[in-house]
Each structure stands twice: as C-alpha cells, then as structure tokens.
C-alpha cells in the first residue's frame, strides 16, 4: 500500500481509532473473523488432512507393529522398530551418507552453480545456449539419467574410462560404481551434473534483481570485481541462496531414484540412502512396520530441519510475505 498523502489516510477498522495497543475489537467480531477464515480454509484443510496428514498418521500407527502387509496390523511391537533403527548399521550408515551428501551438495554443488550463474550473467556470446545446456539435465528424468551414467561409468567400454584413457589417465578401471570407496563420490558427481543447472537458474533469476546502479556506483568508488561480488551480489542474492540450500538439503535427504537405478545402494550398502533402505524393507522384505519407522524417522529429520531452517535462516526472507491474523491490527 502506498501512502502518498500528507494525512494519515489509512482506513480505520474499528469504531475507535487504532491505538496500536492490544486488540480491542469485540469478541463477537473476532470470532466472526476466525469463522470466516476457517470456512475459507476448510476445503484446503480437508484435502491436506486426507492426502498428507492421514497417511503420515497411518505410517506412525503402523510403525508400532510388526506387520507384513496382510490383513490389518495386529502384532503390537511398541517402540521395538525404533529401537531396532538405532541399532541397524545400515540405517546409521544412511544417516552418515546422507550427511556427507548434504555437505558435498552445499559445499561443492551450490558454489559451482553460483559461479556458473555469475559467469553466464555476463555479456557473453551464446550465453542463452549455455544456460539452456546446463539446465537440460534437470529436465531429464532421474531414471534416464541413472541408466545413462550406468553406461558412462561401466567398466572397459564406459565413456568415462575411455575419455580419461585418451588423455593418458588410467581412470578408475571400471570401479566407479563397483568399489565401496568410490561409489558415493560417483553418485554425488551424477547428482551434481543433474541438479546444478537448476540451482544455477535460481541464481540467475536472483541476479536479475541486483540493480546495475549499485555495481556502477561501486566501480566508481574503485571496488574490484571480487569486492563487488562479495559486498553487492552475494548479500543481495541471500534469499535465493538460502532457498537453494534448503531445496538442496531436502533433496539429498530424500534421494532415491538415481541411487536405485545406478547402484541399488550397493556395493554392500555403501551408496544406500534412507529412502533406499525404506524401499528395501517396505517392498522387498514386506516388513512394513519397520519400513514405516524408517519413513517416520525420515519425516522427522526433514521436519526438524525445515522448521529450524524456517525459524533461524529463512525468517527474515519470509517476514512480511507471510500474513497472520495479527498483522491486520
């Protein structure tokens, strides 16, 4: 709302002028406000409850049973499934590998995407082509990407080893996916190839909001390229970066398709993620109770991260964007 007049033109909602103190409107009126808000949100709430909340609650319920998927769950197991989680080397390994993937994504993939975005924001011949080229992998389906890289990193005939061979390097001798120590790094390489273009595009969009005047002014003041990047671009790109970190972390926590197609979590679980373990127990072993416990753990990890991130990191970005009833005062 723009206020160009000299007088205070803001419409007054109550009978009395707004004193800025605590809400003084009559109770009946407040109740009516709530009722209106409630009526309008019922359809959305019902859908959300049915499609999102109910399945989560059901998974929570099932996670307290030993259940193979036949009939209704009846073999109550208490917290057994959760105790078993904490003792399961595969699940604990999943947590560790998940953390590694998050660190690699945030520490390598995002800075790389940012560098590419800044580069492709310059006046450069064919930059539209490059932008499209780097974004293309993101459009490709995960399964196709997985199959593609299974071939690229295959032993002997794989493109990766052959290419490295022609420039005189030995490559990994086909052990990209087939070695316990290499497999996670290889999976990350593919992740990076697939997703950096998406983050690059986010940053590019963010860069369009950085006013050129600021750069001009800074240049006149004698600031070098690095100083301008560090003190103008980076701070103004803050909200975009914070969102991109958020998406990247949640994506790493839920990683499934790529891993399933390329390695099925192997060799010997060294590239397994939580979602892969969940799938193994749910749809291969039919231990649906335990699989539900994994899904609840995964949900809680995502939820805690999301809430904490909202509360501590995203708050200043979303402030004002989110409206609340109190904001109407």
């Amino acid at each position: 709302m723009t206020s160009t007049g000299t007088h205070h033109e803001r419409p007054v909602l109550g009978e009395k002028p707004d004193t800025g103190g605590p809400n003084r409107r009559p109770l009946a009126r407040r109740a009516r406000d709530w009722l209106t808000a409630f009526t309008f949100t019922v359809p959305a709430l019902a859908l959300f409850g049915l499609l999102v909340f109910a399945p989560i609650l059901y998974a929570l319920y099932v996670s307290f049973f030993n259940w193979g998927g036949f009939g209704a769950p009846s073999d109550f197991a208490g917290a057994d499934n959760y105790i078993r989680l904490l003792d399961d080397p595969v699940f604990l390994g999943d947590l560790w590998r998940g953390l590694l993937l998050i660190l690699l994504s945030v520490g390598i993939q995002l800075p790389f995407a940012l560098a590419m975005a800044v580069l492709l924001n310059q006046k450069l011949r064919g930059r539209a082509f490059y932008r499209m080229l780097f974004f293309a992998p993101y459009v490709l389906s995960e399964v196709i990407t997985g199959v593609l890289f299974s071939m690229i990193f295959a032993p002997d005939e794989g493109l990766a080893d052959r290419t490295l061979g022609t420039i005189g390097l030995d490559g990994l001798g086909g052990l990209w996916f087939a070695d316990q120590d290499n497999v996670l790094a290889t999976v990350f390489l593919v992740m990076m190839w697939k997703y950096f273009g998406f983050h690059m595009t986010l940053y590019l969009a963010g860069l369009q909001g950085v006013p050129a005047e600021l750069h001009e002014a800074a240049r006149i003041d004698g600031a070098g390229p690095w100083q301008r990047f560090r003190h103008i671009t980076l701070p103004l790109l803050g909200p975009t970066i914070r969102i991109s970190v958020f998406l990247s972390v949640i994506g790493a926590i839920q990683l499934f398709d790529l891993v399933w197609v390329m390695t099925q979590g192997g060799p010997d679980h060294h590239s397994e993620t939580m979602a892969v373990t969940l799938f193994q127990f749910g749809f291969k072993r039919y231990q649906i109770g335990y699989a539900s416990a994994i899904s609840i753990a995964m949900f809680l990890i995502s939820l805690v991260f999301a809430l904490a991130y909202q509360r501590f990191v995203l708050r200043r970005d979303t402030e004002g964007a989110l409206t609340s009833m109190r904001g109407n005062r």
Binding site: M151, P155, G174, F177, P267
Partner: peptide, 14 residues
C-alpha cells in the same frame, strides 16, 4: 569375476 562386477547388473548393457 569380471572387472567391476560389484556394480554390474544382470540384463543391462555391460
């Protein structure tokens, strides 16, 4: 076993 067998599928190419 063949080279890279730990990463090899059954009916896939390679």
């Amino acid at each position: 076993f063949q080279k890279g067998y730990l990463g090899a599928g059954y009916s896939t190419p390679n």
